[in-house]
């Protein structure tokens, strides 16, 4: 879950699609999160990736904020996990 400086809330799968790293530990700027290991950044809105080493975007989930409560509707799409990593 990300809360940007602009006050928007976003929900993404936490694992970078290149290698097992937590995006929650990454750097958020301009509504994108940069993986804490390498230079790939992902859009908090769409999950798309801008540059290698990651090749695939990360899955995003639908977020609604209602009376200060954050509601997340999990995506039914398949997660884009890095090679060798499985859903735990």
């Amino acid at each position: 879950m990300f809360l940007t400086e602009e006050g928007t809330v976003h929900a993404l799968d936490d694992t970078c699609t290149h290698q097992d790293a937590s995006l929650a530990a990454g750097w958020v700027e301009n509504c994108r999160v940069e993986c804490p290991l390498h230079e790939s950044t992902f859009s908090l809105r769409t999950g798309e990736v801008d540059q290698p080493p990651a090749k695939r975007g990360v899955r995003v989930h639908q977020v609604t904020v209602q009376d200060g409560e954050v509601l997340v509707e999990l995506s039914t799409a398949a997660p884009q996990l890095p090679p060798g990593v499985e859903v735990r």
Partner: peptide, 9 residues
């Protein structure tokens, strides 16, 4: 990871 990414940025 957090501390190092922050330092680099």
């Amino acid at each position: 990871l957090r501390e190092v990414v922050r330092w680099r940025r």
